[in-house]
Amino acid sequence: MMRLPWFGFHSPRSVAEAAKILAGEGPNAMLIAGGTDLVPNMKRRHQAPKTLVSLRRVDELKKVSNGSGLRLGAGLSLTEIVDSQKVRGAYTGLYQAAAQVATVHLRNMGTLGGNLCLDTRCTYLNQNYEWRKAIDFCMKSEGDICWVATASKRCLAVSSTDTAPALISLGANVKLVSTQGEREVLLADLYKNDGIDYITRRADEVLTEISLPDSVGWKSTYWKLRRRGAFDFPVLGVAAAVKFAGDGTVEEARIALGAVSSRPLATKAGNSLIGKKLTDEAIAEAGAKAQNVAKPMDNTDLDIYWRKDVVSAFVGYALRELRGDDMRETRMRIARQVL
């Protein structure tokens, strides 16, 4: 049986207490929320933090509050996000993304904050210690080379979160709290295009809240490509949010891609839609632009050329759905469930 390494354990009751423990323990401590990402990684000895600081009993991370938009506590489980009528109704893309994370059980455990902080992944990395030893490790774990592209100066592990592209397309902000104070950043700015240094959250910060702007006039969607209807991380995620004028003209549009970079990729492909209606031509143009910037690497399942080849098609599915086309059959073939 795969087992965790030894670790010390704290279970604070408040964000302030958690922040204080993190500040005291320094980089040897790691936060654990649902554990669905960290526990397997620890079992594989990617990380062996001396101390785990659990957020499970921090009730304030479970809050949902309405304002002009919606504020979601980072400790809400993905199941709670999926079950939220408010999310389903106003932020469809987030609902669809959350509903396609891993499996029922993992969504019951995993949190929204955890999915946003999800460590980058790679088929050269997410392996047991013995396997990694057999390739003499890689840049992200005890080695020097990135085997995805051996000339690369940086780690090319892939961002595999589903909810981040959806939330980026929805224009979300996140709040980070430490003993130094708190700050709010645009979610898109939380990430860096580096498989190792992929997140700007400092080790002493707790991601506490996700805030979504008002959704009036917006429609959003998320399409996830993976082999199976459950378990799998995305090999491509397409999140699109479009604000329509009354006559169907696009006023704003954001298209974010998952699994094609070391961070969720906020593309500019949506800009080409502004001022236009979602005609087939406009959709094809946006799809081509998105495909252009997508850089799938040999770090996950399926053929990399194919993964790039289908970006435009998936952006097309997303935009056609937002236009009002009946995409249920296609959705069913891809997602294998009603969303």
């Binding site: 965790l4 279970s11 554990g35 526990v39 659990s54 059980h105 019951n108 455990m109």
Partner: peptide, 13 residues
């Protein structure tokens, strides 16, 4: 009452 995976649930919690 919720189905979870025992392999990822820390027993201390």
């Amino acid at each position: 009452g919720q189905p979870l995976l025992a392999c990822l649930e820390l027993a201390v919690e």
